[in-house]
Every structure is written in C-alpha cells, then in structure tokens.
C-alpha cells in the first residue's frame, strides 16, 4: 500500500508541473520584484543600482501619501458597506423572505460575475452629465434639482465608485453570509424563541454572535479585495479628477509603465503587499482576542 501512495515518482509527476509553473511565474517574480526595489529604470532603458533611494522617496512622496490615503479610505468604506449591506440582505433572505428568496438571491448576485470594465462603462454613462444627461441626472431633474457633474469633483466621483462597487458586490456578500446564517442550528434559534427572544433581541443576542466567524471571513476577503482595487477605478474615473481617486495599484501601474520606473513601481507594490498582510494578520489577531474574552 505504501508503495502505491508513497510513490516518489508519482508525486513528482502529479505535483511537479504545477509547482514548476507556480514557482517560475509567481514565486520567483515576487523575489525578483523585491530585488527591483533597489534599482531604478526599466527593462527597456536598463537598470541602475540606487540602494535604498526608492524607500526614502516612498516615505516622502506626496503622491504615495495621497494614494495610500485613498486606498485605505476606499477599503474601509467599501468593506463596511459591502459587508453591512450584504448582511442586511442575508438577514432579509433568511428571516423575512424565507423560501421566496431564491429568485431574489440569484438575481441580486448576478452583477458580481459581470466584467468590471462593462459595469464601469455602464455606470459612467448612467452618471454622465455632458454631452447628454445620463439616467441618474434625468432622475434628479425630475424632482426639480439641477444636474450634478458626478465625475467633476473628487467627492462625488468617489461616491459613484462606492455606489457602483456596492451594487456589484452586495449580492455576493449576501449569499456568502446567507450560507453562514443557514448553519446556525435550528434548535438554538428555537430555544431562544421559547425563552421569549424575538425580532431584534434574537438577531442581536443569537444571530450576530453565531455568525461572527463567517462575518469575519467576509471582512478579511473584502478588505483584501478592496485594497487591491484596480479595474473599477481605472475604467470608471481613470484616477481622476486630477489624481484624487488614484489608489496605490493604479499609481504603481502608472509609475512603472507611463514613467518607466520599475524600481519605484516595485517599491509601491511591496508597500501594497505589506499592507495586505498586516491588515489580514491584524484582523485575525484582534478577532482571536475577542473570542477568548467572550
């Protein structure tokens, strides 16, 4: 038996090719990218060793500061928004719509599978002001209010971005959390009901504490995804107006490919990776502490 399952050659045949491609295309480039942070230049112009200049520049560059701030603001607001709206929807599915929720669930989930570029262009047209009012401004005009130039100021552009991304992802988070809610044993709910807990008390005392693990994994997934936001910003606002909606990912992309500085681009990418890691570890640890306390 051990001859069959411990067959060294079989291990190599099965896991070798995957490991090889994964190592060559992902692991080596990660290390290579770390190496780039000590250089300046690009593959076309050639590289020049610059020591820790990139890191010094990183900490004093106002553009990085602005992008970092935007990334964090976007990640926090969107994570809270996505998970809250998703959770509200999932509660709605489980406790209110019950069996009737299947169609709603399936339909509201749909936007997440749509290409982000297509959704962004659609929202661009919906919120358009010139040369032709989009449907949103027409709607506002209907109530006698003037059209808003949504992409003209940083705050409204950010608002459209948030609305779009919540529209895209709320159904996804609703289904994710719905599965978690279904896992709460019926006996627990029933005994709480017999003890006189109903409506709000039931949700606050039983449902929320019991769905904490799945809420936590949604938060981690959401924050990891939103810190890496790229497609929706690029296609919806292209980082504008000015550079007010430019996240780190887009700044890195521009630094590397528009300005041809791979070294500095890699340094920004490293900053992003470190933030992703820190945030995940932080959430994990703080949640563990809470669990032991409770």
């Amino acid at each position: 038996m051990n001859n069959v399952f411990g067959n060294k050659r079989a291990v190599l045949v099965f896991v070798g090719p995957a490991l090889l491609i994964y190592t060559v295309i992902m692991l080596v480039p990660v290390l290579w990218s770390l190496g780039y942070t000590l250089f300046t230049g690009s593959v076309i112009t050639g590289f020049e060793f610059s020591g820790f200049d990139n890191f010094a520049k990183l900490f004093s560059d106002p553009k990085v500061g602005e992008a970092l701030l935007f990334t964090l603001k976007y990640a926090v607001i969107l994570t809270v928004g996505q998970v809250l709206v998703g959770y509200a929807l999932s509660l709605l599915y489980v406790f209110w719509l019950r069996k009737a929720s299947s169609l709603v669930r399936t339909l509201v989930f749909f936007p997440i599978v749509l290409p982000t570029v297509a959704v962004s262009l659609l929202f661009q047209k919906m919120f358009e002001v010139a040369p032709q009012n989009g449907i949103v401004n027409e709607f506002i005009n209907f109530f006698g209010l003037p059209s808003v130039d949504w992409f003209g100021s940083p705050d409204t552009a950010f608002l459209v971005l948030v609305i779009m991304d919540i529209w895209r992802s709320m159904g996804f988070y609703a289904v994710l959390l719905y599965a978690g809610l279904l896992d709460i044993p019926e006996e627990v709910m029933e005994s709480a009901r017999l003890d006189g807990a109903g409506g709000w008390t039931l949700i606050r005392r039983i449902v929320i504490p019991m769905s904490l693990p799945v809420l936590l994994s949604s938060i981690i997934f959401s924050i990891n995804g939103t810190l890496k936001v790229f497609d929706s910003v690029l296609a919806l606002t292209n980082g504008g107006p000015g550079s007010s909606t430019t996240p780190l990912t887009l700044l890195m992309f521009r630094t590397a490919f528009s300005y041809g500085d791979y070294g500095y681009g890699s340094t920004i990418a490293l900053l992003l990776t470190v933030i992703c890691l820190l945030v995940t570890v932080f959430i994990f640890r703080s949640s563990r502490r809470d669990l032991t306390k409770g």
Binding site: Y22, P29, V30, A269
Partner: peptide, 14 residues
C-alpha cells in the same frame, strides 16, 4: 500565492 497582489509579479514578468 492567494494573498500576493498581481502588481507584485507584473514587472519581473514583463
């Protein structure tokens, strides 16, 4: 590998 942002491998691959 699930954690690594795409940006981290883009430039070396290019």
């Amino acid at each position: 590998g699930i954690m690594v942002p795409g940006q981290m491998i883009l430039l070396p691959l290019f």
